[in-house]
Design a binder for these strands. Structure first.
Lengths: 196, 196
DNA sequence: GTCTATATTACGATAGAC
DNA sequence: GTCTATCGTAATATAGAC
């Protein structure tokens, strides 16, 4: 994955540059000038590859959403007791989030100012609801403590998982993907407290 | 929902309007024109009260940071076993976050494009470190399970708490402040799993 | 304190040469 | 595919009347 990709840009290779800048400065805080500097080509050259800023955003969040929805199609997310399926989805969410880190990061920061952003928010809500259903099913099967509201618990668990984009960096110095996924699963299902 | 408090604006009353718009559109996505429409006065009138957009941001994040750091000065955060102090801080973080919801929301979304934003990020890091120390102390006292990395666990717990700003609305329809704080404390310390 | 009008700069996007 | 030059718009901020 070390190929110096600067002979000519494709929409894809340009996207990886753009997403990095979007995540650094925020989508609204990024101008086409910023993108052009980061990509090393002029503004008008960018318009040769994509129709504009919003297309870059759409491509990025689509990629993130495809990764997340793909989890729900996996066999372990479809068969067996709901608690086990939920654990699989939680673990895989962490893995997908890390594998597609910049794209998911951008998705999670979308505000809703444009049509593309509102579409992304809607699809995120769909995904959240699918997972909330899973937690509800696990509760109905008696595997989730009954002093927690399902909707509330889902939101809090999503918050924990999604917050990983705020600090995870794939530089080998901090925790690795497996370590993070393990910690999330332990915390979400077992909590901090030492059981004695 | 147009005019409510309109006799004349103070920096404080203007701030509450501005913060609402910042949170809705994002700070970078908010123009002085947006603020002027929301406040019901002209752009230049806003400049009569504050020096510009960035002063509004500074006032808002200062208020949020004061609330959070105030927690660490409370007696229950200073005396007793570390695990108890940690639980107090976790619960109070939820309460402060809800009490100062728009201000904390804005603080948590700051990116770092301006000097004010970088200052806010730095103070947030200070606060995080203070809480991480507390968790470390609780672990040393044997009250935190030893298969969790302290730094990692702190980040995940912060992620869960901070994510509340993304969905909590004080309209009485959803969960109340007490209910959310209880759920967070239960989840953080005990996890989702039914203990049988 | 608030307004209208405007200076000035930055932005997204396009035209047309090479 | 990439460039320079530029258009039209919208942004932050100021000037000066009332």
């Amino acid at each position: 994955m070390t190929t110096a990709k600067r002979d000519t840009y494709t929409p894809e290779s340009l996207l990886s540059v753009a997403v990095r800048v979007f995540n650094d400065r925020g989508y609204d805080g990024t101008s086409m000038e910023h993108l052009s500097k980061a990509a090393g080509i002029s503004k008008s050259s960018i318009y040769h590859h994509v129709s504009g800023k919003e297309e870059l955003l759409r491509r990025a969040v689509s990629r993130a959403l495809d990764g997340l929805f793909g989890i729900l199609d996996e066999e372990h997310a479809r068969v067996g007791p709901a608690a086990g399926r939920l654990e699989h989805v939680v673990r895989r969410m962490v893995e997908v989030l890390i594998a597609e880190l910049p794209y998911v990061t951008l998705l999670l920061r979308v505000r809703g100012n444009t049509a593309t952003e509102r579409w992304a928010l809607e699809r995120r809500r769909d995904f959240d609801h699918r997972v909330a259903e899973l937690l509800k099913a696990a509760a109905a099967e008696g595997d989730i403590r009954d002093d927690l509201d399902g909707r509330l618990a889902t939101r809090l668990v999503f918050g924990m998982i999604n917050s990983i984009v705020e600090w995870y960096r794939p530089d080998g110095r901090g925790a690795g993907e497996r370590e993070v996924a393990d910690a999330v699963v332990r915390l979400v299902f077992g909590g901090l407290r030492e059981v004695r």
